[in-house]
Amino acid sequence: MNEATLLWQFLFSGLAAGAIYALVALGFCIVENSLRIVNFAQGDFLTLGGFLMSTFLLAWGLPWPLAALLAVIGVGICGWLLERLALRAAKDRGPLTLIFITIGASIFIRGVIKLVWGKNPRIFPPMVTGEPLRLGGASLAPETLFILVASLVCVVALQLFYRFSRPGKALRAIAYNFRSAYLVGLPVGFLTSFSFFLAGAIGAVAGLLIVPITGVSFDTGVILGLKGYASAVLGGYGSFPGAILGGLLLGLLEALVAGFISSGFRDVFTFLLLFLVLAVKPSGILGSSEEERA
């Protein structure tokens, strides 16, 4: 293969990874726009989605659209419970306490997964199969294409929901000003819970998409969660377009560094770059220009 073909190949794999990071990053942004904290259990939503899907698909033998729907709703409910049972009780305690409650929840979820599904990794077959497409000399596997299309559908659906539906508009009102939203009579408690449902659901979607390629074990979500968090920060924390841009950029960058420089040092490069971006432009690429964001 010549350099150009290789480049195309890296771009495809980078875009696919980037789409996953973008979905995880969107989960972080949804929570940022309601409760204004970092939800460190976001990566574990992804793991949980993968495991639920493997059970529904392989042990129960459900058809995949139904299994996927159940897995997404199931993880969404877990997100809802996290807000309703743990975070709501401590909502006056300041962001650091809330963030560490989500870290506790993350450890707890991993404990549950280890107990229910064991420590061995699992995998399930891809939802679409077929001949790989040839594009510019590089081959594009149908499951990679599926990741790109499904992520795009999710992003568009989320945008439409936030732009045009009543609960979506209410969530935007909360993001704009929590207190005013409360004063005009919006059910802020319900909406906050609902945002966690959304974050869980979108995390589960990311899990469903990546598991057929990489498999899933109890700690899969940790590093993917961090990459998603990094994407969100890179793009400007809390901004939806920023999350998508940050995710794709991070995915592409990693693929290029791994392909042309060194696969081992990929993660060193990634996080050093992130560190430098933060040192130079603290608010991320699409973040508001004020330096000191709360």
């Binding site: 963030i99 968090y229 920060v233 993660d267 996080f271 933060l278 603290p282 709360a294």
Partner: peptide, 21 residues
């Protein structure tokens, strides 16, 4: 100079870079 999430991410990134190195 960073605050909140950005400071958390920057320190995390430092830790991860050291670890992977």
């Amino acid at each position: 100079r960073l605050r909140g999430n950005y400071l958390v991410m920057a320190t995390l990134a430092f830790n991860l870079a050291v670890y992977f190195f």
